[in-house]
Design a protein around this nucleic acid. Structure first.
Length: 557
RNA sequence: AGGGGUAUAGCCAAGCGGUAAGGCACCAGAUUUUGAUUCUGGCAUCCCGUAGGUUCGAAUCCUGCUACCCCUGCCA
């Protein structure tokens, strides 16, 4: 299944299986997003990691919404997360919700109070902060730290009942105000928020904090291995503390294992930053094709297979790293090369006239839809006297090693004939208006002609039958060097999206929404399902083709 | 009285005491009706952040050092 199987996480799990702590089928993993935004490529890595581990052992995988902060969470995010994960290819039962366990969490808090391990603190937020100390000096005990169990219980019950205002009181774990680990300096475990839990449709006056809620959510669901990102390493002691102090779970608590989050060059990964782009209207929405959100990548035309392969290949480790964006692009190309229709589409046209071709003749030529995948069959393409070719496929004064069209040179028109450039027609300002060529009827595609060879094949469309289409050419939103978390918005590439009108062969009219098409020599494109309409076709470029040759830079003086 | 992590090629990443997998990128060549794809070869020649140590043998074990990342929300 997964090739990169021998990593440190698998080792730990395998140890647990070999020592009979768990049988293979008992392994349960979970992917726990907070529903406060859309999923992105980083979540793909995390979700797939958890999912593939559960699959590997025949255990269970849970999608669980970590919805402990009602002020940030919205139904639209829950919906999108489910949709995106299903699209990615994950299969799971009804999602779990952390908020379903609020009543149990409140009960467990009473257990902690009864054990003298939690207390109600009346300090203000500012006082708590002051007394926490800092990285180099210990904190000070709260004056309320030694209240009696009875008083704590009474106060907590009144918090739960809604007798107090937000900020008035919190419930804290009684651990160690002098711990070198800040997370252990009596962390707040319940705060007062007079919010309605939308999902449960029930009023709550206290909401649990992540550090308290997460281990309990895992334990309640029977999760065995709780995989999270590196920044939670310092939280592992509190994770363990909570479970070791609750009788129901102290026997066989889940273990937290951390791995490095995904970073990608030339892109903005990170919900916080993506949300800012969306909120400020810099992109069109969470599914803007320039974003590395799952929905953005999907709209751009990326496939689930490509994301899965990518995710597999980047591996899992604990070192902070930044994966080259080219790696992602490689896996879409790789997935699409045998799936996409390959059509002649001219992005930047220049007119060609075949001077020795009959004026009104139109030939219906047959052309393979994907030369590397004969199963995709053939389709018809009309050929006539007046054509468009790609401007970059012609050079009036060719540079060395240029073997496309130039005066006196002969090339093949893909699926048609050899043509030789005889003339270049210009207007009074010296701009090229059209290129005149002659064709050789003997060289018709498929005729087996082999008396002479050409060094290049170029794509074309006939002027009369060309279908104008709208094409969005995307570039990265930002370059790796310009990413600065404080003011990255200033460095957004204004040309990250450029829309051009292109000319396509008529076969494009048989395109379906979301279908992938390779525009010969111009890369892979996706029929944007959101903008798709038969009278006004719009495509997004997924990724460019690799090019063994690029036109030389404009003369640098 | 700070604590917790991580260092293997341009970028990811295997490796778990027996003599540096794989992928991306890149380079060279072959095939090619897309300068794509495909194929072949080359890409860490006393080397695994660094300095020592243990060992017949070290990227793997030990010690010191250095660099980078995370932590002082009633966010997750």
């Amino acid at each position: 299944m997964d090739t990169n199987s021998s990593n440190f996480i698998i080792h730990k799990i395998e140890d647990d299986i070999n020592s009979n702590k768990y049988s293979e089928e008992e392994i349960i993993t979970r992917f726990p997003p907070e529903p406060n935004g859309f999923l992105h490529i980083g979540h793909v890595k995390a979700a797939l990691l958890n999912y593939n581990i559960a699959k590997r052992y025949g255990g269970d995988f849970h999608l669980r919404f970590d919805d402990t902060n009602p002020s940030k969470e919205e139904q639209q995010y829950i919906d999108s997360i489910i949709d995106d994960l299903k699209w990615l290819g994950l299969e799971f039962d009804e999602p779990y919700f952390g908020s379903n366990y609020f009543d149990q969490m409140i009960d467990y808090a009473r257990e902690l109070i009864n054990k003298g391990l939690a207390y109600v603190d009346d300090q203000t937020g500012e006082e708590i902060k002051q007394n926490r100390g800092d990285l180099f000096s210990p904190g000070k005990d709260s004056p309320y730290r030694n209240r009696s169990i009875e008083e704590n219980l009474d106060l907590f019950n009144r918090m739960v009942d809604g007798e107090f205002q937000p900020g008035e009181k919190v419930l804290r774990a009684k651990i160690d105000m002098a711990s070198p680990n800040m997370n252990l300096r009596d962390p707040v475990i319940f705060r007062i928020l007079n919010g309605k839990n939308e999902h449960l449709n029930k009023e709550y006056h206290v909401f649990p904090m992540y550090d308290y809620a997460h281990p309990l959510e895992d334990a309640i669901e029977g999760v065995t291995h709780s995989l999270c990102t590196l920044e939670f390493e310092d939280h592992r002691p509190i994770y363990d503390w909570v479970l070791n102090n609750i009788d129901d779970f102290k026997e066989k608590p889940p273990v937290q294992i951390e791995f490095a989050r995904l970073e990608l060059t030339d892109s903005i990964v990170g919900k916080r930053y993506i949300k800012q782009l969306v909120d400020e209207g810099i992109v069109d929405g969470w599914d803007d094709p320039r974003l590395v959100t799952i929905s953005g990548l999907r709209r751009r035309g990326y496939t689930p297979e490509a994301l899965q392969d990518f995710s597999e290949e980047i591996g899992i480790s604990k070192s902070n790293s930044k994966v080259d964006y080219k790696m992602l692009e490689h896996f879409v190309r790789n997935d699409l090369k045998n799936k996409a229709k390959r059509l002649n589409v001219v992005l930047n046209p220049i007119k060609v006239v075949i001077t020795n071709y009959p004026d009104d003749q139109v030939e219906e030529l047959e052309i393979e839809t994907n030369m590397d995948n004969p199963e995709m069959g053939k389709h018809k393409i009309p050929f006539s006297k007046n054509l468009y070719i790609e401007a970059s496929d012609f050079m009036e004064e060719p540079v060395k090693k240029y073997f496309r069209l130039f005066p006196g040179n002969e090339v093949r028109l893909r699926g048609a004939y050899f043509v030789k450039c005889t003339d270049v027609i210009k207007d009074e300002d010296g701009n090229i208006v059209e290129i005149h060529c002659t064709y050789d009827p003997e060289t018709k595609s498929g005729s087996g002609f082999n008396k002479r060879k050409v060094k290049s094949t170029i794509h074309w469309v006939s002027e009369e039958s060309a279908v104008p289409i709208k094409v969005n050419l995307y570039d990265n939103l930002i370059s790796d060097e310009t990413f600065d978390s404080n003011n990255f918005i200033e460095n957004i590439n204004p040309e990250s999206k450029v829309t051009v009108t292109a000319y396509a062969e008529p076969e494009i009219l048989n395109t379906l929404p979301n279908e992938k098409i390779q525009f010969i020599r111009n890369g892979y494109f996706n029929a944007d399902p959101k903008l798709f309409n038969k009278d006004n076709l719009e495509f997004n470029r997924i990724v460019e083709l690799k090019s063994g040759w690029r036109p030389p830079k404009k003369d640098k003086k």
